Simulated scan of single mutants.
Amino acid sequence: MGVFLLGMPLFYRIMEKELIRYLSDFLTPERFRLFEKVLQCRTNYLTVVVENIFNPHNISAVLRSCDCFGIQDIHIIDDNQNYEVNPEIALGAFKWLSIHKYSQGMGNSSQFVLNELKSKKYRIFATVPDHKAVAFSEIDVSKGPIALVFGNEKEGISDSTRELADGLITIPMVGFTESLNISVAAAIMLQHFSSHIRKYLDKSVWELDNDYREQLLLNWMRKTIKKADLIEKAFNKKQK
C-alpha cells in the first residue's frame, strides 16, 4: 500500500532497478538481505501523526518505536519549528523512516495533514487520556488504514484534530496516575495495532507496494554506502 509514493514513468522504474543492482555490489550480501527482510515487514497501512510535541526527546522515542514495529510513514506537525532528532534516543531510526514535517506556513497544519490522510482513506483516531473514549484495543483493523494522532504533552490534541477525528481512543488505566508519557503510549498502541494488522489481515493489504519498496531500498542504500553519490555518477555515465 504505497500511499505516499507518486507514480513514476516506466523508464525511471527500470533505471531505478538497474541502479539498485549496481549499488548492491557495494554492500555485503548480509546487509542487502537485511534491507529486504525489513522492507517485507514495513507498512503504511498504519501511520502516526504527532502534533506539536514540546519535548523533542518524546518525538525521537516515537520514531524509534515506529522503526521497531515497522511503521514507515510518520507525520510531524511542528508549528513552533523547534524539533530536531535526538540521535541518542532515536538510535538512527530516522534514517530508515519516511518523515513528513509540517509547519504553520501551510495554514492550519493539523487540518491540512488530517484532510490529506482522509483523502487517502485513512481512519483518524486521536489518542486522549479520557475514560469516555473508546479503548484502543476495540478498534477493528480490518476496516481500513489507521492514522494514530498523538497530541502535545500539556494540552493534548488540538480542536481541529478533535473535530476531524473519526474516533477518540485511550489506554484504559486502573491506577492513581491518569496518563502515560506520549512515547510510552505510542509504543503500546503501535505494538498492538502492528501485530494485529500482520496477524489478521492478508499481507497484500498491509505491505508496501513494489514501487515504494524499491524507492526505500534505494534510499537506504544511498545512506549506507560510502561515497554513494560518486558511485551513482559513475553508473549514470555508463548509461549514456
Rank of each mutant, 00 (worst) to 15 (best):
L63N: 07
H131K: 12
I77L: 05
P56I: 12
S194A: 04
E51G: 11
L19I: 10
D166M: 04
N152G: 05
S65Y: 04
V128D: 02
R64V: 01
F94G: 11
A187P: 05
F112V: 02
K132P: 07
F4P: 03
F94H: 15
L217Q: 13
Q215Y: 15
E84K: 13
A135Y: 13
D166C: 04
S160A: 04
V149C: 09
N115E: 09
Q104E: 08
G175I: 00
H100C: 04
Y200I: 08
N152Y: 00
I169Q: 01
F235Y: 15
S60F: 02
E51T: 13
S110Y: 02
R213L: 09
E116S: 05
N152Q: 03
T170H: 13
I71D: 02
F125C: 05
A228K: 04
E153G: 08
F150D: 01
D211E: 14
V49I: 13
P87V: 11
W220Y: 13
M189G: 14
E178W: 06
F176A: 00
D78F: 06
S65F: 03
L216Y: 06
K132G: 09
I231M: 12
Q239L: 11
S110D: 11
D211C: 06
I59N: 02
F193M: 05
I14N: 12
E84G: 06
T43D: 03
K17T: 14
I77K: 03
V141Q: 00
N115L: 11
F125M: 15
W220C: 02
L148D: 00
L217H: 10
D202A: 14
E36T: 12
W206F: 05
E214R: 15
E155I: 03
M1R: 08
A126S: 14
S110C: 14
E18K: 15
R33F: 06
A186W: 10
Y45S: 00
I71C: 09
P29G: 12
D202H: 15
L6P: 05
F193K: 02
H131S: 12
I146Q: 00
K223V: 06
D25I: 09
D78E: 08
N52E: 10
L97F: 03
F54W: 13
K101T: 06
D209P: 07
I197W: 01
N44W: 06
E18S: 15
K240P: 04
A234K: 15
F193T: 13
K223N: 14
A61I: 04
Y45H: 02
R33W: 05
M1A: 11
